[in-house]
């Protein structure tokens, strides 16, 4: 049972991070390689609001979530918008530069220390007993719940929401969407905002569970194979990819060698690229276009 819980938690972490990659890619075909850093920034924003709001954890979380959403929108408005009409590669390289800039800025502002945002918020990360003798920490349980809610909300929004339908249209054919009166810049800004928000949520919950330091950005990169395995333009694919990568990782840790956990996501990714390069749920024509 503990094995199943461990797989679920890791899959939830990867899925919550991976959906950020998918949202931006699906709409603008840009691979956001600064997603890990934006996720870490979200965690640091929570640290900042936690200090400001101390014991009011809901206020601190709400403020951090709003700040993260705004950050994503601002990244698009002030940086990625300038890349409109340029080669996709240029936009991708811009995100690499953004990641380096953010990493440096975060060290300057918050130093390299280990922080625990749960402390100022007075959140006790207690263990919850589950059937079968398994246990899960409160923050890990919240992470699983949040992932489920985020995916449910995003899938509903994209399927039925007016702006969700516009996002899908912009992703499928931006020229036609623009001719139909859809404001592409607003759609892209929304995608960047939502992407940063979901990544930041993952960062915040990981930080509440296990603390926060400069290594968090690399965790963001570890979730990247999950998005690719599932198909970069599919939210459901990101969920499936996360589950596959997490299951492979945990089972190998448990039954073969813990060291393999570092390479497993990328082994799964290579295997998928050989068999089905566009991912489990990805669209073949989209990949051909890349």
């Amino acid at each position: 049972m503990q094995l199943a819980v461990n797989i679920t938690v890791l899959a939830a972490i990867y899925a919550l991070i991976a959906c950020g990659y998918v949202l931006v890619y699906r709409v603008s075909r840009v691979l956001n390689l600064a997603h890990g850093e934006l996720m870490m920034l979200g965690a640091y924003l929570l640290l900042m609001t936690a200090t400001q709001f101390s014991s009011h954890w809901l206020a601190a979380l709400t403020a951090a979530v709003l700040l993260s959403l705004s950050t994503g929108v601002l990244v698009y408005v002030f940086l990625m918008r300038k890349m409109t009409g340029e080669m996709v590669l240029a936009a991708v390289l811009t995100t690499v530069a953004l990641g380096i800039l953010l990493r440096g800025a975060m060290v300057l502002i918050w130093s390299a220390q280990q922080f625990y945002p749960a402390q100022p918020l007075q959140i006790a990360n207690v263990a919850i007993a589950l059937p079968g003798g398994a246990r899960i920490s409160l923050c890990a349980a919240l992470l699983v719940l949040t992932t489920a809610l985020v995916y449910g909300a995003l899938l509903t929004f994209l399927r039925f929401g007016r702006w969700g339908v516009r996002m899908r249209a912009a992703g499928q054919n931006p020229l036609l969407a623009a001719q139909r009166g859809i404001n592409l810049h607003a759609i892209y800004a929304l995608a960047w905002g939502l992407s940063t928000l979901t990544g930041a949520l993952a960062g915040m919950l990981i930080a509440l569970d296990a603390g926060l330091n400069q290594t968090m950005a690399i965790i963001g990169l570890k979730a990247f194979p999950a998005a690719l395995v599932g198909g970069l333009d599919s939210l459901a694919g990101a969920l499936a990819g996360a589950l596959i990568v997490a299951a492979a990782e945990i089972l190998l840790i448990n039954y073969v060698d813990p060291l393999l956990s570092e390479v497993v996501p990328f082994l799964v990714l290579i295997a998928m690229l050989i068999v089905r390069p566009w991912g489990l749920f990805g669209t073949r024509e989209e990949l051909d276009r890349v």
Partner: peptide
């Protein structure tokens, strides 16, 4: 003996092995 890669998002799988 658990050799844990840096960074790891969740240490529980490694801890589970030590406990078990």
């Amino acid at each position: 003996k658990e050799i844990i890669p840096p960074p790891t998002p969740d240490y529980t799988p490694f801890a589970t092995k030590i406990k078990d």
